[in-house]
Amino acid sequence: MILQIANLDGSLALRIPAKLADQIGLKEGSQVQVSFTVDGGITIRAAKWDRNAFAHELATIRDAMPMTVAVTEELRRGARY
C-alpha cells in the first residue's frame, strides 16, 4: 500500500485511509509506536498502554529522586505562630 505524506502546520503527517484505520482501531488522537529498521524502513504500530511498563517507569523515576524534607515540614519550621 502506498500512502501519502501531507504538510500539517509545518510538520509532515502520514495519511492513513479510514478503512485501514478502522481495521486496526486508530482514530484521531490515537498514539502509535514508530520504529526505524536497519534498512531505512519505518514500522508504525498502534501503541498499547502497558500498565506494568508504566509502573516500572514511575518506580525508576521515584528511585532517582533525592529524598528531602517535606515542603510542609519546612514551612512549619519557618512559620511564626
Rank of each mutant, 00 (worst) to 15 (best):
G78M: 13
M1Y: 04
Q33V: 05
D39T: 09
G10D: 03
P66E: 11
P17N: 00
L14R: 06
N7R: 04
G29E: 06
R45N: 09
H56T: 09
I44Q: 03
M65T: 14
A79V: 14
M67T: 11
T60N: 11
V71P: 13
A21E: 00
R62P: 00
P17E: 01
W49S: 11
V32L: 01
D22L: 05
W49Y: 10
Q4L: 07
N52R: 04
K48G: 13
K27N: 11
A79W: 12
V71F: 14
Y81E: 15
A13I: 01
K19Y: 06
A64S: 14
D22S: 14
I16T: 00
K48D: 11
D22N: 11
R80T: 12
R62N: 03
D63P: 03
P66I: 07
M67N: 05
P66G: 09
L75Y: 13
M1E: 02
S30E: 00
E73S: 05
A21R: 00
N7E: 10
V34D: 00
E74T: 14
Q4H: 12
R45C: 06
N52E: 10
R76V: 15
S11F: 11
A21S: 01
K48Q: 09
E57P: 03
I61V: 04
I42S: 12
A6T: 08
G40A: 11
A64P: 02
K27P: 02
L3D: 10
V34L: 02
L26H: 01
A55T: 04
V71E: 10
L58P: 01
Q31S: 10
S11T: 13
L75V: 13
T72V: 14
A55H: 05
M67Y: 08
N7I: 01
N52G: 07
I24R: 03
Q33N: 06
Y81A: 15
A46H: 02
K48V: 13
K27A: 12
S11L: 08
